[in-house]
Amino acid sequence: MEYILLTILVAFIGFSIYRFFKTKKILKTLSESEFREGYRKAQLIDVREQKEYDAGHVLGARNIPLTQLRQRMNELRKDQPIYMYCQNGTRTGRAALLLHKKGYKDLNQLQGGFKKWSGKIKKTNKPSY
């Protein structure tokens, strides 16, 4: 029994390390100034959930939550760079792995996520019921 648990633990750690380095390879992390330089010429995607997006997002960003990305991938073009962000950088890594698997190449993320963004933001005023 101990060996089974140890094997599972080693496999999990190995897989986590593999994913970490794979994400580093396919997803370019940009400082806020680098992100600002390029995002107007790219597809700017907020991968946070709708409520987070409505509370405040980078001006010009489209909301495609990570939870909907697989179904909405056809909204993204493969011939243009994709600049994305989430709250702190975790979900963009998962989004990048998904997009890369489907043939998207130029994938970029905002270092530190929306939490670190100091530029213009827009809030969506939706009626609460």
Rank of each mutant, 00 (worst) to 15 (best):
H100G: 02
V10D: 05
F35P: 03
K120W: 12
T23V: 11
K24T: 11
I64V: 15
C86I: 03
L30W: 10
F12E: 01
G119Y: 05
N63S: 12
Q87H: 09
V58A: 02
T92G: 09
I82Q: 05
V10L: 11
L110N: 04
I17F: 15
K102D: 12
Q50F: 08
Q43E: 07
Q68T: 06
Y104D: 06
L97A: 04
E34N: 03
R48H: 11
L97T: 02
L110V: 09
V47Y: 04
L27V: 12
C86R: 03
K28A: 14
V10K: 02
P65Y: 12
R40G: 09
E52H: 07
Q71I: 11
E32I: 08
V10R: 03
Q109Y: 01
P65R: 13
I26F: 05
F20K: 15
S31Y: 12
S31E: 13
G93Y: 02
T92M: 08
M73S: 09
L99H: 09
Y39A: 00
D46W: 01
C86T: 00
K116G: 04
Q50S: 07
T29W: 01
R72T: 03
L97R: 13
G89W: 05
Q43P: 01
T92Y: 09
K122M: 06
K41F: 01
Q111R: 14
R19H: 15
M1R: 04
K105T: 12
L98M: 15
F114D: 04
A61M: 13
A42I: 03
Y104S: 06
S31G: 05
Y39D: 02
A61C: 10
L5R: 11
W117K: 01
T90F: 10
Q68S: 13
R48K: 15
A61E: 04
G113N: 08
I82P: 01
N88Q: 10
A95Q: 07
L6V: 08
H100M: 08
C86N: 05
T90D: 14
K123D: 02
F12C: 04
M1I: 08
N88F: 07
G60N: 03
N108E: 05
K78Q: 14
Y83V: 05
W117S: 03
D54I: 03
I8N: 02
Y104P: 01
Y53E: 02
P81K: 14
L97S: 01
R48Q: 14
I13P: 01
Q68L: 12
T29G: 00
R48C: 10
S33V: 08
I82R: 06
T23Q: 14
L59F: 00
L69K: 13
E52K: 08
R70N: 15
D106T: 07
E37I: 08
C86W: 00
D106W: 00
Q111G: 10
W117G: 01
L76G: 02
Q68I: 03
I64C: 10
E37C: 04
L30G: 11
F35C: 02
R62N: 09
R70M: 10
S128F: 11
L99C: 07
I8C: 09
G112R: 14
D54N: 11
C86E: 10
R70Y: 11
G93A: 10
K25H: 15
K115V: 06
Q80H: 13
K123Q: 14
L98Q: 06
G113R: 00
K126V: 14
K25R: 15
P65A: 10
Q43C: 07
S33D: 11
Y85S: 03
F35E: 07
L66E: 04
C86S: 07
S118P: 02
P127F: 00
N88P: 00
